[in-house]
Design a protein around this nucleic acid. Structure first.
Lengths: 193, 193
DNA sequence: TTGTTATATATGCAAAGTGGAATATGATTA
DNA sequence: TAATCATATTCCACTTTGCATATATAACAA
């Protein structure tokens, strides 16, 4: 009664359709595609990918063909259909009208951390700091390069490249913010706790 | 084989135990507690809260007593047990050794948005901008005040107040970052798309 | 008086997601 | 030569989540 029902479409549906809209891939390749490109804002288990592909095939959003291989197990390559493209387009056009609630385990830990001792809290924060420092480096180098590489290979993807860089940029900014916040918080706990 | 198994403890377990560690509450009150205090980093459905409370009672982490009421439906008030406190403490002490993968639907939309037209993308981004602007205002006023209020009522919560403000602060910084990124992205799309 | 909101809890169902293991095999490396 | 890595998919048990709905009652507003 209150939405585009009948074909809601989960987020993973969309990632898979979005990937297959560039080129046909196997489940295995889609897993790698997700790890290379969307990992910083969405991830999925291998098993979930295969099950979702089956579901999408039932819904006629994708079709599949088996490729026989001699040296390796046979593999099933998925192709997007017109219906699939339509589903993708409809979902992309639909604006997000609210902010989705985020989930952050570290914040939860800190929220109830007053009962811990100072050193335990500080150790945990410093550990997170190291992890985020590493993540930031990744965003600034690796991810950026992989985008540049894709575009050299295929200049038709100019717009795509812009959009990919925009998503990459939020990852970078977020990591910077998180680091600043960690530093500030470590300082405050040292002084005020 | 590779973790503190037997009592893994989900995040919602911890929120409920953490809340009950301050004072005994009913399911209904816990729902409100979550909305007031942890909503910006974790949320939960009412049904999920009641079911998790039942589970925690089976595990002897909480006990419950029924309060008979004449004007309202009876209610069940939950109390944390020693085992519950222990579970909470163990979880809080355990450091997070990795960064949890985040999920962001807007980024997903942008990642595949190259096929949309410029106006559609810009409209969606401007809508998000308005939503985040509103969220930022909330963080800067409402949440801050509710923390100050809690501490006036109970000065013993000084440390808790510091930790609460630290979590609030990330909400504020994140909203600012998101806004800056939205502005920057709108600009880039206007110029380069 | 009729409808709505707030209090208070519970249930049922399906979809979504987790995590691990099973099953193959070729290529590489120590 | 043994180990393990990379390819490639599937299955299973389980938890979690979303969403709707049911059952009460009192207070309040239209």
């Amino acid at each position: 009664m209150e939405y585009q029902e009948g074909q809601r479409g989960t987020v993973l549906d969309i990632i898979l359709l979005g990937g297959l809209n560039y080129l046909p891939m196997t489940g295995y390749e889609l897993k790698q595609f997700i790890e290379r490109s969307t990992a910083h804002f969405w991830h999925a288990q291998t098993s979930q990918i295969y099950r979702t592909l089956e579901k999408l095939e039932k819904e006629a959003c994708v079709t599949s063909t088996i490729e026989e291989q001699t040296t390796r197990p046979d593999r099933r390559r998925y192709h997007i259909t017109e219906l699939g493209r339509e589903k993708l387009r409809v979902w992309l056009e639909q604006p997000l009208t609210e902010i989705e609630p985020s989930k952050d385990t570290l914040l939860l830990k800190l929220f109830f951390a007053a009962q811990l001792d100072k050193t335990t809290i500080l150790t945990q924060l410093r550990l997170q700091r190291a992890l985020y420092q590493h993540l930031l480096t990744l965003h600034q180098t690796q991810t950026r390069q992989s985008i540049a590489l894709s575009m050299e290979h295929n200049p038709a993807l100019k717009r795509d490249g812009l959009m990919w860089d925009i998503t990459r940029r939020l990852g970078e900014l977020s990591a910077e913010t998180y680091l600043r916040w960690l530093d500030e918080s470590i300082q405050r706990i040292e002084d005020e706790f």
